[in-house]
Write a protein that binds this DNA or RNA. Structure first.
Lengths: 108, 108
DNA sequence: TAATAAAATTGTAATATTGCAATATCACGT
DNA sequence: ACGTGATATTGCAATATTACAATTTTATTA
């Protein structure tokens, strides 16, 4: 095998796993934090700040983008990233709901 | 490559990634939820409820256990799992701190 | 002690992920 | 048009993950 059997789980469960999976790599945590702390930073800034090669950072950015957590603004040849606050909030809500639900259930 | 360069990141970032990585697979989300909803369920219960083979469930249980999120009680030949509430709370705190920090930073 | 039952471990195949060098693309300035 | 700089894409190697069959371990019961 090697692949995840997503079809046997509910959409709700897959949504939780999709969001947390993106945050489940230190490079992506660092990227999200760096973008949030430095408005309008570009790929090169991240390469310098984090210490992974440019294609690697670009790849992680693409993963984060898939979940809608990033906005981009083209200014000349530069591409500036910012966090999509609405989507970050939605992500936080989904993850927090998981914790709340779990804590409530296991305290009954 | 194939391995994650953990050493280039801070402990704080690695801790966040470690916790979220565990929740980053639907089987593990389902396992955590099922255990929290059914106190003292065993491996076999999870196999039936989730629909993955016994070794697969056992493997995911081991991953969750590594983060300290599970307690086990041996009763005869059965092994009953419960959620470690303190650790779940710690996990929630770490993940929530990440969201709070990120939201605060990107609103400045 | 043998049969049984539950769960971990081992071994293995398939797929996914991580990381980077090389290259391509795209927009700007000259 | 040409060179430059920024980023995405491609291709590839190494490692990790996912899943399961077969086996082992452990405890119980007949």
């Amino acid at each position: 095998m090697g692949f995840t059997k997503k079809h046997i789980f509910t959409d709700q469960i897959n949504t939780i796993a999709n969001y947390t999976k993106v945050i489940g790599h230190p490079a992506r945590v660092a990227i999200i934090q760096h973008i949030s702390e430095n408005k309008n930073c570009n790929c090169n800034d991240l390469v310098k700040a984090i210490g992974l090669a440019q294609p690697t950072i670009s790849q992680h950015l693409a993963e984060i983008r898939k979940t809608g957590l990033l906005d981009q603004k083209v200014k000349g040849k530069n591409l500036y990233y910012t966090i999509n606050k609405d989507q970050l909030n939605e992500c936080r809500r989904v993850v927090n709901d998981f914790f709340v639900k779990t804590q409530v259930s296991c305290s009954k």
